[in-house]
């Protein structure tokens, strides 16, 4: 069983990818492309948050802090040390992961709400340090003049520059695809199952030989890495960073994207980020009310639909029993192919 479902599913993914690739050919508005670029970057951040919150069950509110570490890392390394952007991006993400690993050790000893608070404290500390350590971070003004990624020399294609919005779009899309690829492989593996086991029942997970602390720390470190990566690209595309990148409001927005899109599903963070941003953009006057509505929707989602839009879609598929129902059968079974 599942063979035809698998093919259908792969076709759907290819189709979506095709649309994503064709967007810059059809859409010429720089404004829309810019929004999509930011969407993709935020979707990376939200996807990595999903690994922690959705799959490992740890409500981390430190994520904007790691996003900021990545952003400031790239900004500082490129403007002060004149390091090549690509190396700076990789290094900044590595630093973010390292910080995640180090602060994860004390913080992950706590559970539930305590972890949420402790992680939020860390995120806020990053923001305060970014705003106060003027000589290093430029204080509240931040750092200006962060360079765009330099042209990539691709064999057979010549240099690929990132001056145009379309090129930036493809880079952001590539980062999102890389993130989703890694998440997909993680989630559809025994390792990913051990994350979910910790989320599901920590006591039992320990009893079947899973080092729950190590699992949480790994999840936290990987999530920090991708948050840092997203932050680094964001700094470069915005050409500037300021303590805003560490704000708890950004963090709360990601939580909304994730939970309305569907925590614990691979598509959820992407769907949530795109859908909510689109909704906010389509009705400009709605922008003022957006936080009001999303705050309320978050509560409603927690009560009626904890797995968000994707969860609701899956539940509908299950009930209707359409041929599409195989889509939801993610699991290690599929990992073979």
């Amino acid at each position: 069983m599942g063979a035809s479902g698998l093919i259908l599913r792969k076709c759907m993914y290819l189709f979506l990818l095709l649309i994503a690739v064709l967007v810059p050919q059809v859409v010429t508005s720089r404004y829309i492309l810019q929004i999509l670029i930011i969407c993709y970057i935020f979707a990376v951040a939200t996807s990595s948050l999903n690994l922690l919150l959705g799959y490992t069950g740890q409500v981390s509110l430190a994520h904007a802090g790691f996003f900021a570490i990545g952003a400031y890392g790239v900004a500082i390394m490129t403007t002060r040390s004149g390091l090549n952007f690509w190396w700076a991006l990789l290094l900044a993400a590595a630093v973010s992961a390292l910080v995640g690993f180090l602060v994860g050790i004390p913080m992950l000893r706590t559970r539930g709400s305590y972890f949420a608070i402790a992680s939020l404290c860390f995120g806020v500390i990053v923001g305060i340090v970014a705003g106060s350590w003027s000589s290093f971070t430029g204080g509240y003004l931040g750092i200006l003049g962060v360079p765009l990624p330099p042209p990539l020399n691709l064999p057979g294609m010549g240099a690929l520059g990132f001056q145009s919005k379309a090129a930036q779009y493809y880079l952001a899309l590539a980062l999102l695809l890389l993130t989703l690829f890694v998440m997909h492989r993680l989630v559809n593996s025994p390792l990913g199952l051990s994350f979910m086991a910790v989320r599901n029942n920590e006591l039992l997970a320990g009893a079947v030989g899973i080092n729950t602390f190590a699992v949480k720390l790994l999840s936290f470190t990987v999530a920090s890495f991708f948050a840092g990566l997203a932050g680094g690209l964001y700094a470069s595309f915005m050409r500037t960073v300021s303590p805003e990148v560490a704000s708890i409001h950004l963090m709360f927005n990601w939580v909304v994207y994730l939970l309305l899109g569907g925590a614990g599903t691979l598509a959820g963070p992407v769907v949530g980020t795109l859908a909510i941003t689109a909704l906010t953009e389509v009705t400009q006057s709605f922008k003022d009310y957006s936080l009001l509505v999303f705050g309320a929707l978050l509560v409603v989602a927690m009560i009626y639909c904890p797995r968000g839009l994707v969860g609701a879609w899956e539940a509908m598929q299950r009930r209707l029993g359409t041929p599409l129902k195989r889509f939801r059968q993610v699991g290690v079974r599929d990992a073979k192919g």
Binding site: S290, A296, I303
Partner: peptide, 27 residues
């Protein structure tokens, strides 16, 4: 409605409440 669920669910719900209240006052 969060009673009997993991405590962090109420925590997330609280984030929704605070976003709502802050947006309301700003508005």
């Amino acid at each position: 409605p969060m009673r009997g669920q993991p405590q962090v669910n109420a925590f997330i719900s609280a984030i929704g409440v605070l976003m709502f209240l802050e947006a309301l006052v700003t508005l």
